[in-house]
């Protein structure tokens, strides 16, 4: 069973608030899934290369050519809070 403190640490890394009521079920469910996942630990995978991409594409680079930008008001239109110039956020170290 994954520790309560570990759940809280992971939640913080993921920037997820977990209420007191959510904490215990989360720990339990994560544990169940992690137990299942643990079956791959039994496999002998020495010398097996990891797969990150299944496609075999090369040369997918973009020419350095400008494309139109979004108009400023469109870029800002969906933001929950804006100032005259940009996206407004609580200051990181306030």
């Amino acid at each position: 069973m994954i520790e309560r403190s570990e759940v809280l640490a992971v939640a913080r890394l993921a920037r997820l608030e977990l209420s007191e009521e959510e904490l215990e079920p989360m720990a339990r469910e994560l544990s169940t899934v992690l137990d299942h996942i643990a079956t791959i630990r039994q496999l002998d995978l020495t010398g097996v290369a990891p797969t990150s991409h299944v496609v075999d594409v090369t040369g997918a680079l973009r020419p350095d050519e400008p494309r139109p930008c979004l108009p400023r008001e469109v870029a800002l239109a969906q933001a929950p809070a804006v100032s005259a110039d940009g996206f407004l956020v609580p200051s990181p170290q306030a």
Partner: peptide, 14 residues
């Protein structure tokens, strides 16, 4: 809405 950034992040995502 939250006063500090961390709370804004975690509550929004919550």
């Amino acid at each position: 809405e939250a006063d500090d950034l961390l709370a804004m992040y975690t509550r929004t995502r919550h």
